[in-house]
C-alpha cells in the first residue's frame, strides 16, 4: 500500500527514515525515486547522504546543522511541491550474460528446483524488464525485481564465502549482479563481463536506483570478444 503521507522514523540522532509504502512495488519505488531526486536537487544544508531503497529513503544529516523537525518540514515541503513530470526518466540498460556451466554454477540446481529445463530458466530470466529497486549490500550491487513467480527461488542454505565479481544471481523474487567479489547467499545462474562498479568512474555505479535492466544471453565465445 502507498501511504497517503510520509512516515518519518528516527534512526538515532543523525538519520531520518522516510517511508512511502509497506511493500515491494514498482509504484512505491517510483515515488521514492521522485522524492530522492527532488531532495538531491535541493541540497538542503546539513544533509550528508541519501540512501534510497525499495519503500523508504534514508536521509543522513549533521544534527548540529539541522534539527530533525526542520528536516522533516523541508522533506514534507519538497514532497508537496514537486512535479513528478519534471523528474528525469530512468535509463534502460542491457546486460549480456553467459548462463550456466562454470559461469552459472547454480543454473542446473535452480532448473531442477522448479522442475524445468535450464534453457527455460534462461528464457524466463531474459524475457522480463527489471527495475533497480535499490543499490546496496556492497558498492554497486543492484537489487532487481521482480523475477517471474516460476523463477522465485529461496536463498542457498549455505552462503558462499566468495562469489566472483560479475556473477548474476537469483534469490526469492529478486535478481542481482555482484559488482565486486564478496560473500553471497544467492543462486548464481550466470556471469556478465560488464563492469558494474568502478570507483574511478563518474558516477561510480553503472546502474542507479530506478533504472530498467534487461538481460540477454551470450555464448562464452561472444563473451571473449565482448567490448564495452
Amino acid at each position: 500500500m502507498i501511504y497517503d503521507k510520509l512516515i518519518f522514523r528516527v534512526m538515532g540522532d543523525r538519520a531520518l527514515l522516510v517511508e512511502l509504502g509497506d511493500e515491494i512495488s514498482p509504484a512505491i519505488n517510483k515515488k521514492i525515486r521522485e522524492l530522492f531526486v527532488s531532495l538531491d536537487h535541493q541540497e538542503i544544508a546539513g544533509v550528508i547522504d541519501l540512501v534510497p531503497s525499495y519503500r523508504s529513503l534514508l536521509v543522513i544529516y549533521n544534527p548540529l546543522q539541522i534539527s530533525t523537525l526542520e528536516l522533516e518540514n523541508q522533506i514534507a515541503k519538497t514532497q508537496n511541491g514537486m512535479d513528478p513530470a519534471r523528474i528525469p526518466s530512468p535509463k534502460t540498460v542491457e546486460i549480456p550474460v553467459v548462463y550456466g556451466d562454470d559461469y552459472g554454477p547454480d543454473l542446473e540446481w535452480v532448473a531442477a528446483y522448479h522442475k524445468i529445463a535450464p534453457q527455460e530458466v534462461i528464457r524466463l530470466h531474459t524475457q522480463h524488464t527489471y527495475q533497480v529497486y535499490m543499490i546496496g549490500f556492497t558498492s554497486g550491487f543492484p537489487y532487481l525485481g521482480e523475477v517471474p513467480e516460476a523463477l522465485s527461488t529461496p536463498r542457498r542454505e549455505t552462503p558462499r564465502t566468495h562469489v566472483p565479481k560479475g556473477s548474476v544471481a537469483i534469490a526469492q523474487k529478486q535478481t542481482g549482479i555482484y559488482p565486486v567479489q564478496s560473500p553471497g547467499g544467492w543462486h548464481i545462474i550466470g556471469w556478465t563481463p560488464v563492469t558494474l562498479f568502478d570507483p574511478q568512474a563518474e558516477p561510480p555505479s553503472l546502474l542507479e536506483m530506478g533504472d530498467q535492466v534487461r538481460f540477454h544471453a551470450i555464448t562464452a565465445e561472444e563473451m571473449a570478444n565482448w567490448q564495452p
Binding site: 530522492f36 538531491d40 550528508i48 547522504d49 541519501l50 540512501v51 534510497p52 534514508l58 543522513i60 543499490i135 546496496g136 549490500f137 556492497t138 558498492s139 554497486g140 550491487f141 562498479f197 570507483p199 558516477p203 561510480p204 555505479s205 542507479e208 536506483m209
Partner: peptide, 10 residues
C-alpha cells in the same frame, strides 16, 4: 559520504 545511493559505505 554522499555515495550511499551507489551502495558505497562510509
Amino acid at each position: 559520504f554522499g555515495f550511499g545511493r551507489y551502495g558505497v559505505a562510509p
